[in-house]
């Protein structure tokens, strides 16, 4: 068991350590006074907190709405709407994240909430589509076997359809997280804060040290989240 946990946590811990070393070194050995002023522990922690805030709020909302919506659209009465939705989601996902954030800015203005809302809507798409497709993809004769043996519709949903669709739903959530982490670094452009702040500040004052710090933390966060949900993904399917 202990070895299992180490296997899971080994890579994440190493990555966090690398990021921490870079940040600590940079803060203690600034190349000049501008870096010293712009790159402080306080600032780093603030942008990380903002970034996590953006992610957590928008992803929690997106998972709830996406999964619930996908289930609803897969019911026979809404199935047709579900098929139409698939097309719209595919088009919606083609729209670049910067364009989405920019359009929300023109409509709603600046700020953390606007960024969260845009990220939330953008992240719903893959989750909604995968939930719908996952349930829709459950073989017809499996459903019919369940019905024929006397299972009630709600039991069929919770015992048969959702468990079988689960890996696909998790894959959708993984896609959403990767997109979301990427888009969250753009939130700074519409006043949403987050790790993008550090990068943009670094670029505007031409200090590579600040840029690299921001980029390292953002990259590590993204890789970690993807790695962890990848591990969860491996775990959930014992039966294939």
């Amino acid at each position: 068991m202990a070895r299992e946990i180490w296997k899971w946590l080994g890579i994440p811990l190493i990555m966090i350590a690398i990021a921490a070393v870079i940040v600590i070194y940079s803060v203690n050995n600034p190349t000049d006074s501008i870096v010293a002023r712009m790159l402080t522990y306080e600032r780093v922690f603030r942008v990380i907190r903002e970034h996590m805030g953006l992610l957590l709020v928008s992803m929690t909302g997106a998972i709830i709405v996406g999964v619930a919506g996908g289930i609803m659209l897969s019911r026979p009465s809404l199935y047709r709407i579900g098929r139409v939705m698939e097309t719209f989601v595919n088009i919606g996902q083609t729209v670049p994240s910067l364009a989405v954030l920019a359009l929300f800015y023109t409509i709603l203005g600046l700020g953390f909430n606007v960024a969260v809302f845009a990220l939330f809507l953008y992240s719903i798409l893959p989750i909604l589509r995968n939930t719908f497709a996952g349930i829709d993809g459950v073989e017809h004769n499996i459903i019919e076997a369940a019905r024929g043996m006397g299972m009630r519709p709600l039991r069929i949903l919770t015992k048969i359809e959702l468990p079988i669709a689960f890996p696909i739903i998790v894959a959708g959530i993984r896609t959403a997280i990767v997109i979301n982490v990427g888009a969250a670094t753009l939130a700074t452009f519409i006043g949403g804060g987050g790790l993008g702040d550090l990068i943009v500040t670094g670029l505007s004052v031409h200090r590579d040290m600040i840029i690299v710090n921001g980029a390292v933390i953002a990259a590590v966060t993204a890789i970690l989240l993807d790695y962890l949900i990848g591990k969860v993904e491996e775990r959930v399917v014992r039966w294939a």
């Binding site: 073989e139 004769n141 499996i142 019919e144 076997a145 369940a146 019905r147 024929g148 043996m149 006397g150 299972m151 009630r152 048969i160 468990p163 079988i164 689960f166 039966w239 294939a240």
Partner: peptide, 21 residues
Amino acid sequence: PIKLRLDIGYVIQEIGLFPHM
């Protein structure tokens, strides 16, 4: 219908076993 089906054994074409169980 639920009660009726619970008392009738049903073997479907292509079997329809639940893959996750």
